[in-house]
């Protein structure tokens, strides 16, 4: 097991968004989170990356690193948590003043202080891997949405994270561009990356996931292998949700 989450809760003021979440993220496996909007799935993902501060709960990593959010968490621990994972955003959030290549090299060179030439070579390899070798000197505004998102994936991979997080990576894309991004993510799954993905793409989730988690109202309603959760859901809310997005 790569990461065990126990008793995770998160409130924004009065509003409880996550309630007593228990999840295990298995090493080399893909965990997909689905659920209606407002169910807390994105908040859960953002807690893993310290973009949201959990109100309570315990994270324990396989290397023994552990965080207890019922106590005060030190700045170093925050950074350590954040640096474990790479994040791919729904709206890409590329740095508009940097080229595709510079977007990818920024973290390794500035934060990790790695050797510039090696980082450049690695970044070129990563951009080639996502099919953008010939676009690496272009600025984000010169790329299509699908291309921008693939740069976003390369940027997240470049910091050599243990865990890859995807927050609805195809939700902002035109339908014909979704495939190219999902293709890259599938490839990463085949390479054995540990990943947590929030998505609405049922078919994709079925193909890529080892485990699917269905959330509603801040709770995990159902979880299990994709065949079971997506094909024969036990819970009524899961059935209704799937019906709605499969036959809109």
């Amino acid at each position: 097991m790569y990461l065990s989450i126990k008793g995770l809760s998160k409130s924004f003021g009065e509003l409880e968004v996550l309630k007593d979440i228990e999840v295990n993220v298995e090493k080399g496996k893909v965990l997909t989170i689905m659920g209606p909007s407002g169910s807390g799935k994105t908040t859960l993902l953002r807690c893993l990356n310290a973009l949201e501060e959990p109100s309570g709960g315990v994270f324990t990593f396989e290397d023994g690193f552990s965080l207890d959010f019922d106590k005060k968490v030190s700045k170093q621990d925050w950074l350590r948590l954040r640096r474990k994972s790479g994040m791919v955003f729904q709206s890409y959030n590329l740095f508009p003043h940097k080229t595709a290549l510079e977007n990818v090299t920024e973290g390794p060179i500035i934060v990790q202080k790695r050797e510039k030439k090696q980082v450049q070579e690695m970044a070129e390899r990563l951009l080639a891997k996502v099919g953008l070798r010939d676009k690496m000197h272009l600025y984000p505004h010169q790329l299509s949405g699908g291309q921008q998102q693939r740069v976003g994936i390369a940027r997240a991979l470049a910091i050599e994270p243990e865990l890859m997080l995807f927050d609805e990576p195809t939700s902002a894309l035109d339908p014909e561009l979704i495939g190219e991004v999902l293709g890259v993510i599938k490839e990463l799954a085949n390479e054995g990356w540990t990943m947590v993905i929030v998505t609405h793409e049922v078919q994709f989730a079925e193909q890529v996931s080892d485990e699917v988690l269905f959330m509603d109202g801040g709770y995990i309603i159902e979880q299990g292998p994709p065949k079971q959760v997506l094909k024969e859901p036990k819970e009524k809310r899961t059935q209704q949700f799937l019906q709605r997005i499969l036959n809109p």
Binding site: N49, A50, L51, L79, R82, R83, S85, G86, M87, F89, S91, N93, L94, F95, P96, H97, E106, G107, I110, V111, Q112, R155, A156, A158, I159
Partner: peptide, 27 residues
Amino acid sequence: IPKGQWEAGYTVGMSHSTTLKRIILPQ
């Protein structure tokens, strides 16, 4: 500057001040 730019800086491992200097201020 959109909040996502701060978050993108954080997720590549930058601190608040590095994100400000390298990502936010140039924009």
